[in-house]
Design a protein around this nucleic acid. Structure first.
Length: 499
RNA sequence: GCCCCCAUCGUCUAGGGGACCAGGACGCAGCCCUUUCAAGGCUAAAACGCGAGUUCGAAUCUCGCUGGGGGCACCA
């Protein structure tokens, strides 16, 4: 693309939870603005009060900020083109609506919703396309103005040309031509005096000097209308891009409410607000979502937000709908976790340990973090691997203390020998303990895996854990010996024939 | 029903007439490494929806079909 500073906007309506698709749109907006040294704005399309959802706005802003997508202008931070909330821009829209009426591009309509509904039903019955029947379109403008002045309830409709066609440009999809007769005399201003999206968004984009409009395909059908409005007002057209929607993992259709609940059971979510508690990090999500519909020249796929700012381009967008693939999210999340500096990672996993009621010692956490870093896919995996580091005692399953292909007695003996060995060591470090322990295994005719397995369960209480010697070193000799003794007791109490 | 958009491995994608018996990534399988689990390395299986046409030559261009998606509100 060019490098004229882009002014982009993310303009959601605060009517529900912020999902992955919105995150991607916001990301692309953000990237374009940052890359070109322009501005990224947040605008709330809240003109329909009926659909207002308490808390949606807060979650939206929290989600975007958590992802690291900061806006330069918006309802909370202000800016030179405010207000950034459509409900507060009512008079502005009205002014342009009047302009459209004065130039003959719009007209007052006095039809009631009841009548409209009847017309619609009739059209459906006759297998016709549903559209406004044009009753008020033919009204004398002066008479209409009089009726409005008399306080008669009315809306304002766009006067769509009856013939001809319009050709519009989507940056990614190219030219799209639509017959005007397929388009309706859409309502621009409701009877309550508030503009609908079609007018409001165009006016806002114009006044806020938006250069690039990125919005999902659901706006493609009304794109011709939007362009008619822009042209009727004589404004310069911003660049429009309509990325496709995200499909559910099966690739069949959009994610429904029921299905997103289903997905939660597997530890996934399509809502940005759920991602943090699920253990996902912004870096992983951003990388993943960026690649659903965009790709980079050299086929590389690992990107930080800064990389994306550097490399993103509208020229490499893919218009086909993309199915959500959570295992790829896991992949990217793991990749970015491994890419985090230890102190940073430690800080991010800490809350997950605390959520389990564990008292987390900072120094110990710092020692433990490198051991779990390459094992974690999500941050909540941390306690699964390493909770035992922060517990006073550990309770192994007795059965698991029995070494592979071994009897309880042999296992107990091996355990005792290991205990003696560790006791006699000058210090308990990986360097000091590993070699002697391997020799012990050999003496006992055991594989390293057999012996280490027993010790692992005894010391960590789990069959899967970070590397044994590093773990012992962090836990400390006293505690290790104590756990070994306890494991020995468990084995001793085991019925002989069991194994 | 009508309008619009889209169509390459299971999934995300590269590709824009010959460089393609189609490349990468995730996942899956196997192997290596290895004290478990990972991580890492290597290998394998896996796709141009169908039919016409244009062309010496089509995954790539055109048309049709099929399939998928989106939209047809005083919602956004």
């Amino acid at each position: 693309m060019n490098n004229i500073p882009a002014r982009t906007r993310f303009a959601p309506s605060p009517t529900g939870r912020t999902h992955l698709g919105s995150a991607r749109t916001a990301l692309y907006d953000y990237l374009l603005a940052r890359q070109t040294g322009g501005q990224f704005l947040l605008r709330l399309e809240d003109s329909d009060r009926k659909r207002y959802t308490p808390g949606a706005e807060e979650e939206l802003m929290r989600s975007l900020r958590w992802l690291g997508l900061d806006w330069d202008e918006g309802p909370d931070v202000g800016g030179p083109y405010g207000p950034y909330r459509q409900s507060e821009r009512r008079d502005i829209y009205l002014e342009y609506a009047r302009q459209l009426i004065n130039t003959g591009h719009a007209y007052y309509c006095f039809c009631t919703p009841d009548r409209l509904e009847k017309v619609r039903q009739e059209q459906i019955k006759n297998k016709q396309n549903t559209h406004y029947d044009g009753t008020c379109r033919r009204l004398d403008p002066d008479e209409a103005a009089r009726r409005v002045a008399n306080g008669e309830k009315h809306v304002i409709r766009f006067r769509m040309p009856e013939a001809g066609s319009i050709t519009i440009q989507d940056y990614m999809r190219g030219a799209i031509t639509v017959e005007n007769k397929q388009l309706d005399d859409t309502i621009l201003v409701r009877s309550d005096g508030l503009a609908v999206y079609h007018l409001a968004a165009m006016v806002d984009d114009y006044l806020m000097k938006i250069t690039h409009v990125i919005r999902t395909v659901e706006w493609l059908p009304t794109f011709p209308l939007h362009m008619h409005i822009i042209r009727a007002l004589g404004w310069q057209e911003p660049v429009f891009v309509h990325p496709s929607v995200f499909l559910k993992p099966s690739g069949k259709g959009k994610m429904s409410k029921r299905e997103s609940a289903e997905i939660m059971k597997d530890g996934y979510s399509i809502f940005v607000g759920d991602m943090q508690p699920l253990g996902y990090i912004p870096e992983g999500i951003l990388n993943w979502v960026a690649l659903m519909g965009w790709s980079y020249d050299d086929h590389s796929e690992f990107f930080s937000l800064a990389d994306l700012v550097d490399k993103f381009s509208l020229d490499h967008l893919n218009p086909s709908p993309a199915a959500i693939n959570f295992s790829k999210l896991d992949h990217f999340n793991g990749l970015h976790i491994r890419n985090l500096p230890i102190t940073e990672l430690a800080g991010r996993v800490k809350p997950f340990f605390e959520a389990q009621g564990l008292a987390v010692d900072e120094a110990r956490l710092l020692a433990v973090t490198p051991l779990i870093q390459e094992r974690m896919v999500t941050l909540d995996d941390g306690p699964d691997y390493a909770a035992f580091f922060f517990k006073d005692e550990v309770t192994p399953v007795t059965q698991e203390l029995v070494g592979k292909d071994m009897t309880p007695a042999a296992s107990a003996q091996a355990l005792q020998q290991a205990q003696d060995l560790l006791t006699g060591l000058p210090e308990l470090t990986k360097a000091a303990a590993e070699e002697p322990m391997r020799q012990l295994a050999e003496q006992l005719g055991l594989s390293a895996g057999q012996l280490f397995g027993i010790l692992r369960v005894a010391i960590t209480g789990q069959k899967v854990s970070p590397p044994l010697f590093e773990s012992m070193e962090i836990i400390g000799r006293d505690k290790v010996l104590e756990r070994l003794r306890y494991a020995g007791e468990l084995l001793a109490a085991m019925p002989l024939q069991a194994s």
